[in-house]
């Protein structure tokens, strides 16, 4: 009897630290975000608010959402446009370009060593600490000392064509945003894809070759169709993580200074999650920032439910398995 209780308790004991972490780092912020999103908490009423926390003295209001949805905040529209540009273009690098690259590396490159070198090249940004990766970009694009301008000059691009700042001048700034995030994000798709390509039975490829397919036709008619689920998985997963990610933009462009917008706004790289971050930590409008985040959370949850419907549990957990 005692043993069987022990059996049931022991796993819980092992899981406890993890469950505690989840509660602290995930559930409680979520509850707070929902709560704060319906209040007008800011730096001005902060102390009073904390005293009345979770009592009915706090006025619950829909003001924040009115500001967002009725365009009372003039920047919401632009932020939305930048976010769509960000998610769609980085996603196409992460999901589609990474696919082409994986096929090139894992199928067309028959030399194992070369294939491995190429794979590591794309993994480098992922294993570099984020702040160093960001600093390397900042240095790379520096108009005075940067390698980029130096290279372009060597290739014969006249000085007058070069922008005074890659960081500020649109559309270069936005291209930069896409590249910085695309390069570091591509590795995720590539790991999933290369594993999936390697799991395709060689006989299938051989059969197609014997049937008269060229190497290119093998890629198009056998490999890509077989990667259907991995492709969907990477797309789904990356959409979620891109919607809520802003760390590289924050590290390169900064969140805010002065008026609280930094150069992210003028460079045209202010994505939704960074906007929420800015509202909270540069302008200290905590209620409004929570409301902004809440919209992202809602979209994310809706997507996750949709994905479960499409994939089923097993495919979401085993993305690299090719179904044969």
């Amino acid at each position: 009897m005692a043993r069987s209780i022990g059996r049931r308790l022991l796993p819980l004991l092992f899981l406890a630290p993890m469950l505690l972490m989840i509660a602290l780092a995930w559930v409680s912020p979520l509850v707070l975000t929902v709560y704060l999103g319906f209040t007008d908490l800011s730096i001005k009423n902060f102390l009073a608010f904390v005293k009345d926390f979770f009592t009915d003295k706090v006025s619950i209001t829909l003001d924040n959402f009115r500001r967002i949805f009725y365009a009372e905040d003039p920047y919401v529209g632009e932020t939305l446009r930048v976010t769509v540009l960000y998610v769609v273009s980085v996603l196409s690098i992460n999901a589609i370009y990474a696919l082409a690259l994986s096929i090139a590396i894992a199928y067309f490159t028959k030399n194992e060593l070369l294939s491995m070198i190429l794979r590591v090249t794309w993994l480098l940004p992922r294993i570099t600490p984020g702040i160093i990766y960001a600093l390397m970009w900042i240095w790379f694009i520096d108009p005075k000392y940067g390698l980029l301008n130096e290279m372009l000059r060597l290739m014969g691009v006249p000085d007058s064509w070069l922008p005074d700042s890659w960081l500020l001048r649109k559309p270069y700034s936005q291209m930069l945003m896409i590249m910085i995030n695309g390069y570091v994000g591509a590795s995720f798709g590539m790991i999933v894809y290369t594993a999936a390509i390697k799991s395709i039975p060689p006989d299938l490829v051989n059969a197609a070759l014997v049937d008269g397919a060229s190497e290119f036709q093998v890629a198009r008619r056998i490999i890509i169709p077989l990667l259907k689920w991995p492709i969907l998985f990477v797309t789904a997963w990356q959409t979620l993580s891109l919607l809520s990610s802003y760390e590289y933009i924050l590290m390169v462009w900064g969140a805010g200074s002065g008026q609280g917008y930094g150069i992210a706004r003028s460079a045209g790289v202010m994505v939704w999650s960074l906007y929420s971050y800015t509202k909270a930590f540069a302008e200290h409008l905590y209620g409004y920032a929570s409301a902004l985040s809440l919209i992202l959370v809602a979209i994310g949850l809706a997507l996750i439910i949709l994905y479960f419907k499409i994939f089923g549990f097993r495919r979401l957990m085993e993305p690299s398995r090719v179904e044969v």
Partner: peptide, 27 residues
């Protein structure tokens, strides 16, 4: 291989799992 006009049945059959029987044969 594509220029040899060979028909082959593999040890594992190697049917294309994403195609119907018709498309497999028509490939």
């Amino acid at each position: 291989p594509k220029d040899r006009n060979i028909g082959m049945v593999f040890q594992s059959y190697a049917l294309y799992p994403h195609m119907t029987v018709y498309d497999n044969i028509a490939f």
